[in-house]
C-alpha cells in the first residue's frame, strides 16, 4: 500500500495525464458512434436488406482482434502507428457495430399501433420520429450505450501496447519493471472506477430521460 502512495507521489503527473487521455480515448469514440448509430440504426430498422448487410458487417468487425485492427488501421488511414486517431477509429468501429444493432432493436421494440396512432393524430414523419419513435426506443438504445461505454473504457488499455497513452501505459510499465505491482494496481483501480462512474452517469441520464419506462411496474 505504501508503495502505491509513493509511486503516486513521484509519478502523479504521468498518471493524471494517462487518466485524462484514457477518458477521452474511451468516450470520444462512443460519442461519435452514438451520433452515427441513430441514422444508421434507423436505416437498419426500416430496410430489411440493409439490416442483413449492416448486422453481418457489424459481427465481422467485432470478431477482428483489437490489436490487429490497431496495427492495420495506419496502413488503411495513412496515419502513423503512434497516432491516437487509430485508437479513436478502431473503438468507433467497435462501438458502432454494437450501437447500430441496439438502436435498430430499440426501434423494432416500439409498438407499431402507437406509431399508427401518432400518424393518425396528424404527426408528420420527421416530427413523429423525434417526438414519438426515438423517445420510445431510448430505453433499449441507452442500455446499448452502457455496454459500449464500459467495453470501451476497458478496451482503451490495449492502446498502450502500440505505444499510445491511456491507463494501459501503467500496465506496460509495471511489466517492464519486472511485474512491479503499484502501477498495475493503480491502472486497474482507476480503469474500473472510470467504468463504474461512466455507467452510473448513463443510468442517471436514463432515469432522467425515460421516467415513464419505470411507471407501471407496480
Amino acid at each position: 500500500m505504501s508503495d502505491l502512495w509513493s509511486y503516486l507521489a513521484t509519478n502523479g503527473g504521468d498518471v493524471l495525464t494517462a487518466l485524462v487521455q484514457h477518458i477521452w480515448l474511451a468516450l470520444l469514440p462512443v460519442a461519435i458512434a452514438f451520433v452515427l448509430s441513430l441514422p444508421l440504426g434507423a436505416l437498419v430498422h426500416r430496410y430489411v436488406p440493409v439490416r442483413h448487410i449492416a448486422l453481418t458487417t457489424g459481427s465481422v468487425v467485432y470478431t477482428v482482434p483489437s490489436l490487429a485492427l490497431l496495427l492495420l488501421l495506419p496502413g488503411i488511414l495513412g496515419t502513423s502507428v503512434l497516432d491516437p486517431l487509430n485508437v479513436v477509429v478502431a473503438l468507433t468501429l467497435y462501438s458502432l457495430a454494437l450501437l447500430v444493432r441496439t438502436t435498430a432493436d430499440g426501434l423494432d421494440a416500439v409498438d407499431p399501433t402507437v406509431l399508427q396512432a401518432a400518424t393518425a393524430m396528424g404527426y408528420r414523419p420527421v416530427r413523429r420520429w423525434f417526438a414519438v419513435q426515438l423517445p420510445l426506443a431510448m430505453p433499449v438504445i441507452l442500455t446499448g450505450l452502457r455496454v459500449a461505454t464500459v467495453a470501451n473504457v476497458s478496451m482503451v488499455s490495449i492502446a498502450a501496447l502500440v505505444g499510445i497513452g491511456g491507463l494501459g501505459q501503467l500496465f506496460t510499465r509495471g511489466f517492464q519493471l519486472g511485474f512491479y505491482l503499484p502501477p498495475i494496481v493503480l491502472g486497474l483501480v482507476l480503469s474500473v472506477t472510470l467504468a463504474v462512474i461512466a455507467d452510473v452517469l448513463i443510468v442517471v441520464l436514463q432515469r432522467g430521460l425515460t421516467p415513464w419506462s419505470r411507471a407501471g411496474a407496480r
Binding site: 402507437v114 401518432a118 393518425a120 425515460t210
Partner: peptide
C-alpha cells in the same frame, strides 16, 4: 381517431 387498446403514447 380511437383505436383498440387506446394506442396511447407510453412516454
Amino acid at each position: 381517431y380511437v383505436i383498440q387498446g387506446a394506442g396511447l403514447f407510453p412516454h
